[in-house]
């Protein structure tokens, strides 16, 4: 190979240094926030003069923060379920279907990925105001589904493309009805794709703030929106605690998915 790591000599150290620096650059803000959430200073002094769990206590004592967490979780779960189900159906059509306009349809499904989020937000806001979905849970779900679905479709389609349709044919000849062949053979075979789709969908909804700001009302907010609005009026370490919690859920989910995938790969 042209760039063989073992043959780089002294450059290896330089490479390691740059990689370390990049990692640091990406992680520092998160580490910083996490450290601040345990710091005793109300004014977010760094390094913290002392350590405390006070801010987490305040976070979990405040019904508004709790409501925001519950709202976020509820929306993310519903978005995940819908995104995986719709993504599965759409992927079957896009991968297995033979019809005119298939490529156009695929581009249409993936369009929200490239569309500026704020434009999508304004458009959805305008429509939702008219049809009365603004500020409702359904409105949040639909908005997040629009951005989550492309990721779901990509993950599931990619997995489905690796499953030879002849395998389904074999299951049918073996005596399984076509729906049964898909349920018992194809869907388990694309399990890793479904898992990725679910994790991505959940995280997209869980982290999403731009669309959520447009959809939110003072009484119905997601956690990122609550962080954002609180930040505008009040600089409290509770925000750091909430942010750390957001990151923690994301991290846990990624790790869990990676573990599941490894176990699935080995079995």
């Amino acid at each position: 190979m042209l760039l063989d790591f073992a043959k780089l000599g002294a450059w290896r150290w330089a490479l390691g240094f740059i990689a370390g620096l990049t990692g640091l650059f990406l992680l520092v803000p998160i580490v910083f926030i996490a450290a601040l959430s345990f710091g005793s200073s109300r004014w977010l002094i760094f390094p913290p003069p002392d350590w405390t769990l006070k801010w987490y206590g305040e976070l979990f004592a405040d019904p508004r923060w709790l409501a925001a967490m519950a709202t976020s979780a509820k929306i993310a779960v519903v978005v995940t379920v819908l995104s995986v189900v719709l993504g599965l159906l759409a992927s079957f059509a896009l991968v297995r279907g033979r019809f005119r306009g298939r490529d156009a349809l695929r581009s249409l499904f993936l369009a929200p990925m490239v569309l500026p989020l704020v434009i999508l937000a304004v458009a959805l806001y305008a429509v939702f105001l008219r049809v009365g979905l603004s500020g409702t849970l359904a409105g949040f779900v639909i908005a997040h589904l629009v951005v989550a679905l492309p990721f779901s479709i990509i993950a599931i389609s990619t997995a489905l493309e690796t499953v030879d349709p002849a395998i389904e044919d074999a299951a049918v000849v073996c005596g399984a009805a076509p729906w049964e062949a898909r349920w018992r053979v194809t869907i388990p075979a694309i399990g890793h794709g479904l898992l990725s789709a679910a994790v991505f969908s959940f995280l997209i909804s869980w982290d999403e703030v731009v669309l959520a700001i447009f959809m939110a009302t003072p009484t119905l907010q997601t956690l990122p929106v609550k962080v954002w609005t609180t930040l505008r009026t009040d600089l409290t370490p509770v925000i750091a605690a909430a942010s750390t919690l957001l990151v923690l859920v994301t991290l846990a989910l990624m790790l869990g998915a990676a573990l599941l995938r490894r176990r699935g790969g080995r079995a």
């Binding site: 002849a166 074999a170 000849v173 005596g175 399984a176 049964e180 062949a181 388990p188 075979a189």
Partner: peptide
């Protein structure tokens, strides 16, 4: 008769074992 009820056996050109089983 639909294929799943014909009761015939078939071995395909491509590998068609169910990968997760």
């Amino acid at each position: 008769t639909p294929p799943q009820q014909r009761g015939l056996g078939m071995v395909f050109q491509r590998y068609t074992l169910f990968p997760h089983l």
